[in-house]
Design a protein around this nucleic acid. Structure first.
Lengths: 126, 126
DNA sequence: CTTGACCTTGTCGTTGATGTCAACGTTTAG
DNA sequence: CTAAACGTTGACATCAACGACAAGGTCAAG
């Protein structure tokens, strides 16, 4: 299949696919006329990448997962390098959540100072 | 006071101050030689801006707060426009927190699939 | 006079994952 | 034959808040 079909099937733009290739995440055979030619395995790679991007991973983070799939594993997350990324990402997410909770409290506090009664309409108003 | 002193006192770079001016958040009188000249009120403005940036506000978000201070209010958050920004920001933060919690669950789930026993080391290992 | 610490404007670079053109070659259907 | 629908590479634009220069003007001290 050529780039347009892969893009349609994976739900991404052709621009994105060329970018992934430029970043070394996917590769493509070339036909005589220079067109990229892909197989089903490539669709799987792109799907994995998209899935990871969807939960906040970067392309860099996705690398070990792609390598894992290429190495023949059925799941991109079943290699030790991928597991390490999972754990690092979990830690990062937890950090961000903590930061956001602290910010929320800070902002809510300032809002209360500036406008008593503007906040805290969550459980009841009375 | 000139830009260097304001920068030092506010704990920001001169570059940042010029940028705030370019964005219309602060203004400066000019001395005969073209140097920017600031007063204590400007320090207050910059301090407010920094405080807001520190909790995740954008410069755009900070605008009403600056306007509020300029209008003579002692607090930048005590004007209705500022309160509206506070509320919008709270909603945005809550959204982000929800997104991150969902992501955390998703990633943790995938990690558990890929490596049972890798996660859940929070309360005890048995 | 000169060094050094200020100040000025202006412009490019950063970060990530593309979008959007440009300018061109290829293939396919009518 | 031609127009539409593909493909190619290359390069600039986006978002935010600056950092880091360049190339110069100003001012006080020694």
């Amino acid at each position: 299949m050529r780039i347009g079909e892969l893009a349609r099937r994976a739900g991404v733009s052709t621009r994105a696919l060329r970018y992934y290739e430029q970043q070394g995440l996917i590769t493509a055979r070339r036909t005589a006329n220079g067109y990229r030619e892909y197989g089903e395995a490539d669709l799987k790679l792109v799907t994995e990448i998209r899935s990871l991007l969807g939960v906040g991973f970067t392309l860099e983070d996705a690398r070990p997962f792609v390598a894992c799939l290429r190495a023949g594993h059925e799941s991109g997350g079943s290699c030790p390098e991928s597991v390490a990324v999972y754990q690092r990402k979990l830690a990062e997410i937890d950090d961000e959540i903590r930061t956001l909770l602290a910010r929320r409290a800070e902002v809510a506090g300032q809002l209360t100072d500036a406008c008593p009664g503007c906040v805290l309409r969550k459980q009841g108003e009375s």
